[in-house]
């Protein structure tokens, strides 16, 4: 009898965890299917007839469409660049000994702590002077400041776990270092590279501060557009929540794919 009551408590506790994690997300998705009248109802309604009007409004709004396109382009480009630049660096950090190695490694990690506002100010001035303001390029480059360290960290970890015997065997066959990197480390390290790429994509997709400061009309990203709906007298709540759902859904799916690595990615591996 005692056992079953503790089991019941355990189940209730876990159910509470699920409810806690999902409620705000659920509330957004629910609101995205409500009519404006249902959203403005006081007290809030929990049962309602769903409508697709908000999504129709979102998908026929060229501004949202363009913004999602911009986000997709910027996040993909910065991810590809981060992997192209970061994977070789990770290979060097995992396999070679050289002076200043640990300093370099810590420098990569320190970038995780950097507040974006510190870089946003000078990058804004520099972009203003060079005419890069409101271009895809400036966001792609500035996002590398946080993506590159993540790729380097996760890939270094992954490359270290590849047994050195393989490399020695390849060297006996006369393979040079670049061939070893390309033929052994890249294929065997692919899972780590994929995880780091997904992280890089998620962080770039979610970013607001740089996007807010460094863009004007042309390259507004999805979070910027979603927040821009938040002004005016009568807010289009349903449309805002539908936009929010459209923004959050893809990255949530990505995050579920890498959920096992979430802690590693967010702590830069300080805790395993």
């Amino acid at each position: 009898m005692r056992l079953s009551s503790s089991t019941l408590l355990h189940a209730l506790g876990l159910a509470a965890v699920v409810a806690f994690s999902l409620f705000p997300f659920y509330w957004m998705v629910a609101a995205s299917f409500k009519t404006q009248a249902d959203i403005l109802a006081s007290p809030p309604v929990w049962l309602f007839t769903p409508t697709l009007d908000n999504y129709r409004a979102v998908f026929s709004d060229s501004k949202v469409f363009g913004a999602v396109g911009n986000s997709l382009l910027i996040a993909s480009a910065t991810t590809v660049l981060a992997v192209l630049l970061g994977a070789p660096a990770a290979f060097a950090l995992a396999r070679y000994d050289f002076r200043g190695k640990s300093d370099l490694w810590f420098w990569f990690i320190s970038n995780r702590m950097m507040s974006p506002i510190v870089l946003a100010l000078p990058v804004y001035i520099l972009a203003l002077q060079t005419g890069l303001l409101d271009t895809h390029l400036v966001l792609i480059l500035v996002y590398l400041t946080f993506n590159l360290p993540i790729v380097v960290w996760i890939c270094t970890d992954q490359f270290k776990s590849i047994p050195p015997d393989l490399e020695q065997a390849a060297r006996l066959d006369g393979a040079d270092q670049f061939t070893i990197f390309r033929k052994i480390y890249l294929p065997l390290g692919a899972p780590g590279i994929a995880v780091s790429a997904i992280f890089s994509f998620i962080f770039s997709w979610n970013e607001l501060l740089y996007a807010l400061v460094l863009t004007r009309r042309n390259v507004q990203t999805a979070p910027v557009v979603a927040t821009s709906f938040m002004s005016g007298y009568e807010l289009p709540w349903g449309k805002i929540m539908a936009t929010g759902t459209v923004i959050v859904l893809p990255v949530t799916i990505f995050a579920l794919i890498v959920s096992r690595h979430m802690v590693r990615g967010l702590t830069m591996g300080a805790t395993k």
Binding site: V17, S21, L22, P24, F25, M28, I202, W205, N206, L208, P223, A226, T227, G244, I247, V248, V251, T252, F254, A255, L256, S259, M262, L266
Partner: peptide, 11 residues
């Protein structure tokens, strides 16, 4: 538990 962590901060 991963859902809150991945949700876009602005959203």
């Amino acid at each position: 538990l991963v859902v809150p962590l991945a949700t876009t901060y602005a959203v």
